[in-house]
Design a protein around this nucleic acid. Sequence first.
DNA 1: GTATTTTAGTTCACTGATGAAATATGAACT
DNA 2: AGTTCATATTTCATCAGTGAACTAAAATAC
Lengths: 174, 174
Amino acid sequence: MASLKNCITMMDEGIGRVSQIIPEMPAPEARLCRLMLMVGGSLEAELEFKLKPHKLNHSEFLTLMILYSRPDGSSTPGELCEYATQGATNMTRIANTLVKRGLITRGASAEDRRRVSIRITAAGKRFVRKMLPPMFPRVGLMFAGFSDTDKRNLDRLLRRLAQNLDQLSEPTHP
Amino acid sequence: MASLKNCITMMDEGIGRVSQIIPEMPAPEARLCRLMLMVGGSLEAELEFKLKPHKLNHSEFLTLMILYSRPDGSSTPGELCEYATQGATNMTRIANTLVKRGLITRGASAEDRRRVSIRITAAGKRFVRKMLPPMFPRVGLMFAGFSDTDKRNLDRLLRRLAQNLDQLSEPTHP
DNA sequence: GTATTTTAGTTCACTGATGAAATATGAACT
DNA sequence: AGTTCATATTTCATCAGTGAACTAAAATAC
């Protein structure tokens, strides 16, 4: 595995040289972009690594967690698509595999019969309660050396960044 | 497109409820993880969106940029694999497509004849100099409302996070 | 100085995720 | 009743990424 450290020093040198050739480049912002992409990618890899023993991928895990976090433990494919940022096609597949493993059930909705009601099973809840805690130590290590202020700051800055990204994709306001 | 805002409020509620069921969960850190993953994913989507008109994907763009940022404009597949965090197989394919488009060349290395020397062409450099500047405005917008201190802080925190992630993947030190 | 091991890259076959289009069903509207 | 819209699934094609086997050349061992 390539270490982030190498990639980052490499990136710093690269951006330095590119901004000499193209001085209009917003170098600090470009650096932040690349940092976000690298760290985000590494974080995703770390997560998938922790999920592998449970034969889950990121989308399946996220879907399951959304259901788990619901007061009534249920949702619909459409809603899950939105919150898990997945296409409908993919969500059908995800639901298929989770149903096959007995972690969720698919049923018809009472009010709107076009809808499908997806619900986490008792086995699904047990599964989450069992698999989640072993992840906590590594999550803690990720933020080793972060003061409470650091965490608050990171939280705040990421939310602001999210806000800006939202506006980028919706150029026209309703 | 689902907005990050919705996903984030959803996530906040979800983590709140989960941490009531499982109080051992490090909620602030888990929130930061999810934020990083969401924002990172959205950033990646934004980048791919900007690259699509140029018929490039993230890996191809990154590979090209690494070469562009080199003083001599050259590297080897192995090195590119490391810095672009790609497998060797994939790098072969990436190099193939970039060669096909005339943006890079593949040649034999003089010293070590196992090695392949990959070099950006004049056309490749022109291509980068032309496609890069139109991206700058949107990069600037991403960090709208960020003070210089904010940017410095985000930079610092991301680098620290990267450091911690590195240590997670290398449990044994050399 | 030959033999073995290691390193660098490529080829091939495969998986996994994603998107577009067609379909089925039911609700809402006119 | 008929049209339009919404929800979900199926099918099909595509693309990015991965692992295993292979080739060639350098490094090391003996």
